[in-house]
Design a protein around this nucleic acid. Structure first.
Lengths: 176, 176
DNA sequence: TTTCTCATGTAACGCGTTACATGATTAC
DNA sequence: GTAATCATGTAACGCGTTACATGAGAAA
């Protein structure tokens, strides 16, 4: 349940509503894939029950009323404890690799087709991240160190995809 | 549900029992993290219902009787169709990256500690894969092309971890 | 007029994990 | 005597996804 801590992390910057959180997620490279309605609203209720956040309701005339969540001292503590837990290894689930593992069922044209499609997929992934980085939404922009960390994270992601591309190229050359 | 296709993929080599499949999974780099009892036995029943596999029961004297699963024509078809579906982008869930994103809560010693622990984690991950590759279990060893693919997959995994190490080194140097 | 934004939420499902359960045999 | 291997399975839970639902106001 890293979503819980992701939300706490975001709330450690400043208060958010559920709706804002939902929009913030796609801007954070480490978790841009995640954060749908259901999870966020449910987790927020849970965090509130655990007294890790407080909630203020702001009534608006022309729009539905907002619920603004603020992190508590206890919440900051919980976040920090999590940050200090032992790091887990990354879990990369690459369905394409599984496919390749059993690609002997395919002829070379079919494999080449898949490689090409995968390459395109990776390329658009790179575009997305570069766009994210350029627009620079959802970044904290507070301390120098934090800015550096965010840049490094972006770079790591891009480098991952670039390496994937090189790897694909080599495969394309050798599958014949 | 890629486990379904992973199992079909394995069965496309030769028949397996559930127990053997369970042991085979950790030897396959693309899915070494997966494949627990529950999933495998449940999926096998499901595959059988869908007539994608057949099942022979082999009674043994001194051991519990085996259920040997063999892929059917329909199963091979299903597998091949899956292999030809459009590739999905890799989903890398790296909890450590999420942590780093919010690491501003930590002082430099604490971050350095986390980086060191993560580095060790990655190193042992590399050892595991290299060991896998060396022992060379669970590889098909049939055609030349298949052997090549498996080697490329191993290489990609190792390169991913190596790049992660370099990235960590840079962080270690600059966080002060 | 249709679509988008603001803002909240629920229902149902799917995939995967951990832990539990059995029971004989063989290796240390 | 203890642990591991062979071989099967079930129960319960957790996390996440997709889709559904409401309802007003602003923009295309």
């Amino acid at each position: 349940m890293s979503i819980k801590y992701a939300i706490l992390g975001l709330l450690s910057w400043h208060p958010y509503t559920g709706y804002e959180l939902k929009k913030a997620f796609p801007n954070i490279p480490a978790l841009y894939w995640s954060g749908n309605n259901n999870q966020i609203y449910r987790t927020l209720v849970q965090l509130h029950n655990e007294k890790l956040v407080t909630r203020q309701i702001e009534i608006q005339d022309n729009y539905p009323s907002k619920k603004i969540y603020t992190i508590t001292e206890k919440g900051l503590h919980e976040l920090k404890n999590w940050l200090l837990t032992v790091p887990e290894p990354p879990q990369l689930k690459n369905t394409f690799m599984i496919k390749l593992s059993f690609a002997d069922q395919l002829n070379k044209e079919e494999i080449q087709k898949q490689l090409l499609d995968y390459k395109n997929e990776i390329n658009s992934q790179i575009l997305i991240i570069k766009e994210l980085q350029k627009r620079g939404n959802g970044k904290p922009k507070r301390g120098k160190r934090e800015t550096y960390l965010w840049e490094m994270i972006h770079r790591r992601w891009i480098s991952y995809y670039s390496n994937e591309l090189e790897w694909i190229k080599e495969l394309q050359k050798n599958i014949k």
